[in-house]
Design a protein around this nucleic acid. Structure first.
Lengths: 109, 109
DNA sequence: CTCGACTATTCAGTGTTACTATGTACTGGT
DNA sequence: ACCAGTACATAGTAACACTGAATAGTCGAG
């Protein structure tokens, strides 16, 4: 995709990943693959890992190292209470934005 | 609002302003006021002006200087053909994002 | 007539974010 | 021994919105 998506993802990708983790725990490689399947064709692996480390430092997720049979150990992230709270806030902010944009798209003005 | 909105606005604010201009020509001060009325309570004036200059340099808008009775001359921006094309692309990108997020929000996984 | 309030634009410096590119490390198949 | 696939990490870059301040014009109050 283009630069447009890249910029729009700022602030949103974080919410996307938190939302994924709210469904079930997951690790970086898995999340990257999942995103690619869903049309985020060129989200770099590095981006996902950096983001995961960021939300870990912010205390939004818990981490568990689990050995893999096919490579280095996986870092499995799961959303904790603080993360859920943050995710809720994310959805509120997202709703606010989508409502304004929907109005703009239709109403003109 | 918080930092969350700030980050989400990246890439989106540009589209918002192009969408406003697609309805009618407008100048910076007016756009800022309009945004504030609609709930974007703390978008800095400086931000709007910087963005306007950016889209001007990209050739998405035409500019006309019009004297004001109440202050310095206004720089009135209007969307040109290229800008309209870019706006359409913006809406496509935006739709893509909202669809994915809507799925995430409902479906879980 | 000077001061503040409102209108209107600009700009240098900052922080956050995603991308690029590369490197590390472990396993299994040929 | 080599390569593909799995899995994570990181230094450097570009883009964007924010902060804070400066500049400039008009008008009404004191």
């Amino acid at each position: 995709m283009g630069k447009q998506v890249t910029e729009m993802l700022k602030g949103t990708l974080e919410g996307i990943i938190l939302a994924i983790l709210s469904g079930r725990p997951a690790y970086g490689y898995e999340i990257t693959a999942w995103l690619r399947e869903r049309g985020f064709s060129d989200i770099a692996e590095g981006t996902v890992y950096a983001l995961l480390i960021r939300i870990e430092h912010r205390g939004l997720v818990d981490v568990q190292k689990i050995p893999s049979e096919k490579g280095p150990p996986r870092k499995v992230y799961s959303l904790n209470a603080q993360g859920r709270k943050y995710l809720e806030e994310f959805w509120r902010t997202w709703s606010f934005l989508t409502e304004r944009l929907e109005q703009l798209r239709e109403g003109g003005t």
